[in-house]
Structures are given as structure tokens and as C-alpha cells.
């Protein structure tokens, strides 16, 4: 699935992350990370974003992370919310992975 709209979730507060998902004019998931702990956790952050995109069957998107030291669970929640907002759907709390 391609994204048609932009979705944003999160804040720039300490320990949070602002996730912006946008349509990707090219193909694939393009992840851009701004974080003071990118050297330590950059790979893990990419993996988390990719797995969220997989959950929602998103194949093409630009994902921007403005990270202020968020833990993995926070990043996952923000990424899921950003995707839901971009898709204009509510989060399915009953579903296994929110779809």
C-alpha cells in the first residue's frame, strides 16, 4: 500500500519522538532519523519503523523521526499513530497488531 496523505504523531519533548509519515514519490520505505543516540540505537529504530510499516502493509513512505531519546515502545506507539492518522483510520485496539 502507498501512503496518500501525511500523518504526524508525537512531540519534541524529552523522551518522546515526533514521527512524520509522508507519501514517497519513489518506492520503498525511506527512513530519516534525527537523534542524539543514533549511533547507539539507529539500527533498532529503523527495525521498529519497518515492522510498523509491515503491520499496516505500507510499502512506500517517507518516515521522519525527530527523536528526543524515546524508548522503543514510545517510538512504536508514535509510528503506529502517525500511520493511522495518515490513513485516516482509528487504531484497532482489539486487533493483534492494530489493523
Amino acid at each position: 500500500m502507498r501512503l496518500e496523505n501525511t500523518g504526524i504523531a508525537g512531540t519534541l519533548e524529552s523522551s518522546d519522538v515526533m514521527v512524520t509519515v509522508k507519501p514517497n514519490p519513489a518506492s520503498g520505505i525511506d527512513i530519516q532519523i534525527e537523534s542524539s543516540v543514533i549511533a547507539q540505537y539507529g539500527d533498532e529504530m529503523r527495525e521498529t519503523v519497518k515492522s510498523v510499516m509491515q503491520e499496516f502493509d505500507i510499502t512506500d513512505a517517507v518516515v521522519e523521526l525527530q527523536d528526543k531519546g524515546a524508548m522503543d515502545c514510545v517510538l512504536r506507539a508514535r509510528a503506529e499513530t502517525a500511520v493511522c492518522r495518515a490513513l485516516g483510520v482509528g487504531f484497532n485496539w482489539k486487533g493483534e497488531d492494530g489493523k
Binding site: S14, S15, S36, Y41, G69, A70, M71
Partner: peptide
């Protein structure tokens, strides 16, 4: 030593 166990993701 007074210290929080984590600071942000650190």
C-alpha cells in the same frame, strides 16, 4: 551517588 536509572533512552 544520586542518579536516575535512565535518561531518555540512555
Amino acid at each position: 551517588v544520586t542518579i536516575p536509572v535512565i535518561r531518555g533512552r540512555t
